[in-house]
Design a protein around this nucleic acid. Structure first.
Lengths: 137, 137
DNA sequence: CATAAACTATACTATATTAGTAAACATTAA
DNA sequence: TTAATGTTTACTAATATAGTATAGTTTATG
């Protein structure tokens, strides 16, 4: 029941970009050093964030990354799903045909887990990076 | 961000036991067949539930398992934690010394994840197996 | 128009976790 | 005493995690 390390790095990277003047481009190396994320791994993560439309990348010399939209329009859920794909608390909620008991909708355990999952998604989507950035002491 | 398969099996096994007259003992083989859980794997899971004080085991011929307390006193959180250990949404929340950025309490990302974690625990502890059993159609 | 500083793409790898299985043992009712 | 039950420990195949490596592409600038 854990978010993976890449997601942690991704959120901290987006938070870092959120703290810069909007639109400012910084190279991956700087994020890597500031946030202590292994460089190669970070590049992979930034590519996922780029493909998800959360950050914008610039190639070539003086290239780097910036946010693709204002921090207030990027939620924690956006970042989690960019890295891990859709949240699925349990196998049966992800692909009900794999449920080896009864169809998820009829199983009270799976019903309850579905409600948990919805609650988690709602919770994560309530936090945007404008809010988080204002929380930095 | 998924519960593992053993936890799914565990919850369904506890739900199954909750549907029986309180205190009734059934052998693992029956649970295995009814809930379609591989027998050997189920035995391992039942042992964890036994150690957590959720079910009671009886050895020898005519042995088996029953609930150790009424369904109303067993929550989904109890079962999840019996199988997976304490819920930790992220590495830094589990062991803050492993946090490679700043101490969790000072990082707004980790703060937000901590709130998510608390919300999840609260959510899971609101469901007990009396409730779930009454939801079975 | 060459070069070096950036990002991109694909493939590889060591380790840990997941989801079981196997073999030998302990308990207990009949 | 035996057979049906749970217990213990060890093993294993497959997958996921957390990266690393190698080769390539883009682009500002001198």
């Amino acid at each position: 029941m854990r978010l993976n390390q890449a997601t942690d790095y991704a959120m901290r990277s987006v938070l870092y970009l959120s703290g810069l003047p909007y639109g400012q481009v910084v190279e991956a190396k700087l994020i890597s050093e500031e946030e202590r994320v292994p460089m190669r791994f970070l590049l992979k993560i930034l590519r996922q964030l780029t493909q998800a439309g959360i950050v914008q990348s610039y190639r070539g010399i003086n290239g780097g990354y910036s946010l693709a939209r204002p921090p207030s329009e990027i939620t924690m859920l956006d970042v989690v799903e960019a890295i891990e794909g859709p949240i699925a608390v349990n196998r049966c909620l992800h692909s009900p045909d794999e449920c080896n008991k009864f169809f998820s909708a009829h199983c009270p355990v799976h019903q309850a887990l579905y409600e948990l999952q919805q609650g988690m998604k709602e919770h994560l989507s309530r936090y945007n990076f404008q809010m988080l950035k204002e929380r930095v002491k």
